[in-house]
Nucleic acid binder design. Structure first.
Length: 441
RNA sequence: GUGGGUGUAGCUCAGCUGGUAGAGCGCUGCGUUGUGGUCGCAGAUGUCGCGGGUUCGAGUCCCGUCACUCACCCCA
C-alpha cells in the first residue's frame, strides 16, 4: 500500500493523466508560454520568504549527514510553483525579456494531513505572466482565457466552472460601506461555502464589527454572480460607491468579456470568491468541478502586484494554477475516469510456436514502423489463451501470422486477411482513449 | 496539530450475547486437444493490521500501538 497522501498512479490512470498533461502543454504553448522547470528543492529561506510559515514544508536531510559538518543551509521541497518562480525571476531578471510568460508542470509537496482531494505529493500546472514595474491588465484576461481554453480541451471531465472575482472590487465595496476591518469581512465571507448565511451574518457583526445593515449588504454582494457582465448593474444597484470598487468592477467585467466565446468551460463572475488572505491584489480565480464541489477549488490563482521584489524593482504578476492530481484522482477513485486499455499496444501478434518468434517480431516491426504499438505474445499458448491475454489488457486486435496473415478485432469477433505492410487500425484504436463513464450503478 | 470512524481472501464485504474462518466478484484448471467472452464442473488463497491482557477458549471483550479514512485547519 502506498504511503498515505503520496498517490500511486496505475497504467490506465496514468494514460489519462498523460493525456491531460499533453493537452495542457499544447494549449499553453499555443499561447506562447515558455516551459520552465525549477528544482524540487529550495532553501528554506526562499520557501518561507513571504513569511508563510503556515505551509507545512518537507525538509531535506541526508540520512548519514556528518555530525560535525552540519552545513546549516536548510533545504525543503517546494510546496507550490509560484514561490520558486518568484525566486527564479529575481535571480534571472537581467536575462529575461519582460513580460515573461511561462508554464510549469511539476510535482509539489505539502506536509499536511491527507484526505479526499488533498495530497502530500501532487502535480500542479501553472501559467504566469510577470513583468518589471508594471504589468498591463490585459494579461489578467489572457491568463484566464488560456487556462479556460486549456480546461476546455479536457472534454472527458465533468463540467468545470471557472469563477472570477476581484479583490479591488470587494475591498472597495467593504471600505465604501464603512467596514472597520476589511480583511475580517473577507475571511467571514469566504466561509459561505460551508457555513449558513445566518451564521456568517452574525460573525460579520460580532467578529468583523459591522452593523446588521452592512452585513446584509456584504451578503447581498456575495450572492451576485453571472456568466456575462450583468453582474455590473447588479452590484451598482447595491448603492455602495468607492473608487476601488469601480476599478475592480471594470477589471472583472473585462475578464468576463475576454473569456466570452469559450465553450466547454463556464467562466463566470462570482463575487463571493475571496481567496483567503493571500498575496492577491486584484483578479482572483477559483474553479469547481460539477459533482465534486466538496473538493473545493481545483484551479486557482490571481493577480499579485508584489510577490517578487528585490527592494528596488518590483515584479508584478498574474497566474493560475491547476491541481492536476486533485482534478483526476477523485475521478479515478469513483471509477468515472479511465482509459480504454491498460497497455499502449493496439495489436498483439499471436505466437503459434516458439520457432516462429523471429517471424512474429518482424511483423511487429512492420507495424511499429508505421506507428502502431504492437507486442508479440509472451508464450506460444493456445490461441484462446493468447486472445484472452489481449482481452484482459484491452488490446483490440490480435494478429494471426501465416501464409496469409489475418487480423481479428476481438471486440466484434471480425477476422479478415491483412497485410502487415499496409494494414492500419481505426484512428481511435491507435492509442488508449480516455473515457468518462457518467456514473456506475 | 485537534476530534470521529474503520482494519477479516487479490477486490467488496458478512461473521449475532466469545466456541476451530465465510459469500460474491476475481484468479487457476477442465468441459472446449491451437480462436477468447456465455454456461457448467472442479480448485487454490488468510499471520482476522500488530503487541499485550481477560478466558478452558478471542476475528468477537479490554488496553496499547500502527495504518487507513473522514471532519476541522488550510489549500491544488
Amino acid at each position: 500500500m502506498p504511503i498515505s497522501g503520496f498517490p500511486e498512479v496505475l497504467p490506465a490512470q496514468r494514460f489519462a493523466e498523460l493525456a491531460v498533461l499533453d493537452r495542457l502543454r499544447t494549449t499553453f504553448e499555443l499561447h506562447g508560454f515558455a516551459p520552465l522547470e525549477t528544482p524540487a528543492v529550495e532553501s528554506l529561506d526562499q520557501l518561507t520568504r513571504k513569511g508563510e510559515i503556515e505551509k507545512e514544508v518537507y525538509v531535506l536531510r541526508r540520512l548519514h549527514a556528518d555530525a560535525g559538518d552540519d552545513g546549516n543551509v536548510e533545504l525543503g521541497l517546494h510546496f507550490d510553483l509560484t514561490v520558486p518562480f518568484a525566486r527564479f525571476v529575481l535571480e534571472n531578471a537581467g536575462r529575461l525579456e519582460f513580460p515573461f510568460r511561462r508554464y510549469q508542470i511539476q510535482k509539489v509537496w505539502r506536509g499536511e494531513r491527507p484526505q479526499q482531494g488533498r495530497y502530500r505529493e501532487f502535480t500542479q500546472a501553472d501559467i504566469d505572466v510577470i513583468a518589471r514595474d508594471t504589468l498591463p491588465f490585459h494579461h489578467d484576461v489572457e491568463v484566464a482565457r488560456v487556462m479556460a481554453e486549456a480546461l476546455s480541451t479536457l472534454d472527458f471531465l465533468p463540467p468545470l466552472r471557472l469563477q472570477v472575482n476581484n479583490r479591488k472590487l470587494i475591498q472597495g465595496f467593504y471600505t465604501g460601506l464603512g467596514a472597520p476591518d476589511v480583511a475580517a469581512v473577507m475571511r467571514e465571507i469566504d466561509k459561505l461555502d460551508k457555513v449558513p448565511a445566518e451564521v456568517v451574518h452574525r460573525a460579520l457583526i460580532g467578529t468583523a464589527g459591522l452593523t446588521s445593515e452592512q452585513a446584509d449588504q456584504c451578503l447581498a454582494l456575495a450572492q451576485v454572480s453571472s456568466a456575462d457582465t450583468s453582474f455590473v448593474p447588479a452590484v451598482e444597484a447595491l448603492g455602495v460607491k468607492h473608487e476601488l470598487l469601480a476599478e475592480g468592477l471594470a477589471e472583472l467585467a473585462a475578464v468576463i468579456e475576454g473569456c466570452a466565446g469559450i465553450t466547454g468551460v463556464t467562466v463566470e463572475a462570482d463575487l463571493r470568491i475571496a481567496r483567503g488572505l493571500d498575496y492577491y491584489t486584484g483578479t482572483v480565480f477559483e474553479t469547481r468541478m460539477q459533482g465534486y464541489e466538496s473538493l473545493g477549488s481545483v484551479c486557482s490563482g490571481g493577480r499579485y502586484d508584489s510577490l517578487a521584489s528585490d527592494g528596488k524593482v518590483t515584479y508584478p504578476g498574474v497566474g493560475i494554477s491547476l491541481g492536476v492530481t486533485r482534478l483526476l484522482m477523485p475521478l479515478f477513485q469513483r471509477g468515472e475516469l479511465s482509459t480504454s486499455r491498460s497497455v499502449p499496444s493496439a495489436v498483439l501478434v499471436a505466437l503459434p510456436n516458439e520457432d516462429d518468434r523471429a517471424a512474429c517480431d518482424a511483423i511487429a516491426q512492420q507495424l511499429r514502423a508505421r506507428g502502431i504499438a504492437t507486442e508479440v505474445a509472451a508464450t506460444p499458448q493456445k490461441f484462446g489463451k493468447q486472445i484472452r491475454y489481449a482481452e484482459r489488457r484491452g488490446i483490440p486486435f490480435v494478429w494471426f501470422p501465416g501464409d496469409t496473415h489475418e487480423v481479428k478485432d476481438i471486440r466484434s469477433g471480425d477476422q479478415a486477411v491483412a497485410d502487415p505492410a499496409v494494414w492500419t487500425p481505426p484512428t481511435e484504436d491507435l492509442h488508449p482513449q480516455v473515457v468518462f463513464t457518467e456514473d456506475i450503478p
